[in-house]
Simulated assay, not measured.
Amino acid sequence: MTPSARTFDTAVMPHLHAAYNLARWLLRDDRSAEDAVQEAYLRAFRFFKDVRGDDVRPWLLGIVRNACHDWLRQNRHLDDQVEFDEVRDSDMAASAADTAYADPFVLLDHRDLAGRVNEAIAALAPAFREVIVLRELEEMSYDDIARVAGVPVGTVMSRLSRARALLRRSLHDDRPAALRERKA
């Protein structure tokens, strides 16, 4: 089915969550991410007739990426950005904490690990953070990530390998003493 045979809503709107997720990780601010996604969707709507192929997700996320980079270039002077905290801000985490039969130690371990993973991802350089988010959180293929980032597949693989190594090192070095002792 060609892009002209389908509507913008049915082809692009199902990827809104992925677009916001990528923007949130790149910009590290919920409101800025919302603005960037809105701008990206306006651009996507304008150029929707030019889409080639059936899979619009990489095309759309490339536009989101570019909108985020444009936003960062225009707003570098803003130092008051607030980082999104998955554990604190997630409805899922809140509902899990409310579960009466949940083991409090398991919940504590889960919250601690999720928080440390989010901090480790946020500390990555933007190029590494981008490939981790697209591969591990959005489950995109290497080819699609290459299309989104505008780099060769080999570069995606290299960045992903380095990002994973940095995450492993960060999570290992940052593990609280109480967890190291209990796991041993």
Score class of each variant (00 low, 15 high):
Ala5His: 04
Ala5Cys: 08
Arg6Ser: 00
Phe8Arg: 04
Pro14Arg: 07
Pro14Trp: 04
His15Asn: 13
Leu16Asn: 03
Ala18Ser: 14
Arg24Phe: 09
Trp25Asp: 08
Arg28Lys: 13
Arg28Gln: 14
Ala33Gln: 04
Glu39Lys: 13
Ala40Met: 11
Leu42Asp: 10
Arg43Phe: 03
Val51Ser: 04
Asp55Arg: 10
Arg57Gly: 00
Pro58Arg: 09
Leu60Met: 11
Val64Met: 11
Val64Ser: 04
Val64Thr: 01
Arg65Lys: 14
Ala67Ile: 04
Trp71Leu: 05
Arg73Gln: 10
His77Val: 02
Gln81Gly: 15
Val82Ala: 11
Arg88Val: 04
Asp89Pro: 03
Ser95Gly: 07
Asp98Lys: 13
Asp98Glu: 14
Thr99His: 08
Pro104Val: 13
Phe105Ser: 11
Phe105Asp: 13
Leu107Ala: 04
His110Thr: 12
His110Asn: 09
Asp112Gly: 10
Asp112Lys: 10
Leu113Phe: 02
Leu113Glu: 12
Gly115His: 08
Val117Arg: 00
Asn118Arg: 12
Ala123Phe: 06
Arg129Thr: 13
Arg129Ile: 12
Ile132Pro: 10
Ala146Phe: 14
Ala146Trp: 10
Arg147Glu: 01
Arg147Ile: 06
Pro152Asn: 07
Val153Arg: 13
Thr155Tyr: 12
Thr155Ala: 13
Arg159Gly: 10
Arg159Asp: 01
Arg162Ile: 02
Ala165Glu: 09
Arg169Asn: 05
Arg169Val: 08
Pro176Ile: 02
Glu181Arg: 12
Glu181Trp: 02
